[in-house]
Design a protein around this nucleic acid. Sequence first.
DNA 1: CCTACCGATCGGTAGG
DNA 2: CCTACCGATCGGTAGG
Lengths: 233, 233
Amino acid sequence: MKTESIRTRGAESSGSISVHDQKREHILAVAEDLFYRNGYAGTTIADIVRELGVTKPFLYYYFSSKSDIFETLCWRASHACLTAMHFKPDDERAAIDKLREGLHRFAAANVSYFKSGTFAYREGGALDPAFMKKLRTMARRFYKELCALLEQARNDGELDFDDAKLTALSIGSIAGFMYTWYKPGGRIGPEDMVKELTRILMKIAGAYSQPASAASKIGRGRNAGRAIRNPSI
Amino acid sequence: MKTESIRTRGAESSGSISVHDQKREHILAVAEDLFYRNGYAGTTIADIVRELGVTKPFLYYYFSSKSDIFETLCWRASHACLTAMHFKPDDERAAIDKLREGLHRFAAANVSYFKSGTFAYREGGALDPAFMKKLRTMARRFYKELCALLEQARNDGELDFDDAKLTALSIGSIAGFMYTWYKPGGRIGPEDMVKELTRILMKIAGAYSQPASAASKIGRGRNAGRAIRNPSI
DNA sequence: CCTACCGATCGGTAGG
DNA sequence: CCTACCGATCGGTAGG
């Protein structure tokens, strides 16, 4: 497969995965690609088994239904993306540093799960309402955590933005729509893509400065224009 | 069909729309809402006619097929959003000013068509390949025009960004994913939403300063709840 | 784990 | 002979 370079799940990479789980993962990988390309309703069980070279009852031995496969994919990807802003309660770092790390994790998760990361948003009508509710709760927590960090960092004088919620939604949107244009193996490799995306997300938050490695590229002073807008800082 | 949408919109605002076109527009409005909420495959002809309180043959008198309805909606919205960066050849203004106007038009079109603006991306599998090709050509031109303006304005010393294509795609992503969170009648009215979105888009491009008028606070929108369909800028 | 097959529901159209 | 529809049902295909 093409995209497993970034997605390193523990058991899978250590080789201790059972044959049963291997077959399950293969079904999931093929189904993920078909759902990504043709949508939930546009993908039939017959499509999946044809691509796998197996029969329908084979598939139904591993999964109870079409939605079972879809929800498994959906949950994995959404969980990976939406827990990026979780930090341990004893993490005492500055808000701006936690934000930068969290947004980097968020960008990395979205690049890694670019096929299924936003299934929940695009195919909400096809999902079980109870399952959707759990995903919505997780998404709400993500935005709550992101908004809190944004406002803390702004109070610290590190950020410049108007509306926290709208800023957070814009950040989520860049990752959420990435599936329409990102393809692995393109002009920009996955690692550089994550770095660039993180920079753009920090830009939306109105970060005054970038990490030293990136700041060297800027010829014209960033702080000159910003300082005029917010003389209080 | 696809090109008559402009004529229909003009007649709509002047009040001289025929009874035939009124009924056609009513079907489109109901179908747009259902496609938006349940997706293309998740919406049946039976759903649409039930919501309308008519029969299927009534609907098939106005449209030749389910995809005919969908493509009409898709084309209108995509056309409105993706022509935002068109400027007359004799427009001699500075790139930064054209960019700001174009991004404002783009934000306004996406707010106005928040239900159907990104049907083409989410439901590509359901659309006719030839139709999809026309949409992709239009999208490519949008990004080409946007990239050109971005690079011109950067050469003028007005912008600060790394990669033009990635910046343009990020700008498109914010508008493209807005359908997941924007609802008219929310905390921020449509006019303020367009202004704020435009500011955020300019921020991604690395604009050093904002126009004075945009510094106004967002809050109680006067026209909250009324979607702006025809933003003449 | 396959062959064979089901209940239901889909988009689209017949005659009047 | 046209328009604007209605009650009933078509052939094909979906998930299971």
